[in-house]
Amino acid sequence: MEITLSVLLLFMIFGAIYALFASDLLSALISCGIVGYGLVICFLLLRAPDLAIVQIVVETITLIIMVAVVLDSTRHDLREKVLIREKGNSYINAKYVFNVLTVLVLALFFLFFFNQAIDKLDAFGEHTTRMAKAYIEQGAERTGSANLVTGILFDFRGYDTLGEATILFTAVVGVLTILRLKGHK
C-alpha cells in the first residue's frame, strides 16, 4: 500500500511542479487537476469513500471556475526573470534570489515542526484508534447511521458542521458582494 501511494504522490508532485512552471495558465490549471484527482485516488486507496466523493465534486467545481476566470482574462504567465541582461552583461535578479531564500528559510522552519510531529506519531499503517474508539464502538447504535463519518459529522460534532455551513454562507455573501456590478461612488 505504501509503495502504491508513494508512486501516486510522486506523480502528484511532478504535476504540481509542472503547474508552477508552465508558461500557459490553462495548462497550469489542467496540471493542477492532476494533483486534485490524484488526491481522489489516494482517498479511495486509504478507505475514505466519503472524502473521495466530496473531493471529486469540489475539484471539478474549482477547476471549472478557474478555467472560466482564465479564459475570460489572460492566459499569459508572468514570472520574475532569473537573469537580467543589461548592456551586454547579465546579472542574477536579486528579487528572485530573495524569494528563493525566503522559501528555504520557511522550509527549514516547517521541517523542524514536521520532524517533531513525526516523532510522536505512529508509523504509517499502525494507527491505534484510541481517540475514535467510542465513536467506532457505539457510533452506529447511538446515531443510527451505518456510515460512521456522517454519524460523527452530523451528530457528535454537529456544531462543527453548523460552523462550516456558516462559513459557506459567509463566503457566498462575500463573493456576491465582491462581484456586484454597481459600487458606491
Binding site: L46, R47, A48, D50, L51, V54, Q55, V58, I61, T62, I65, M66, V69, D72, S73, H127, T129, M131, A132, Y135, I136, G139, L148, V149, G151, I152, L153, R157, D160, T161, E164, I167, L168, T170, A171, V172, G174, V175, I178, L179
Partner: peptide, 28 residues
C-alpha cells in the same frame, strides 16, 4: 480506519472551496 480525521477533513475540504471562491472573485 479512523473516522475522526476523515470527518474533520471533509469539513476542511468544503471550507477550502469557500475560501478559493473568495480568492477567485477577488482575482476577477
Amino acid at each position: 480506519v479512523d473516522p475522526l480525521p476523515q470527518a474533520m477533513v471533509l469539513t476542511a475540504i468544503v471550507i477550502g472551496l469557500a475560501t478559493k471562491a473568495m480568492l477567485l472573485s477577488t482575482a476577477i
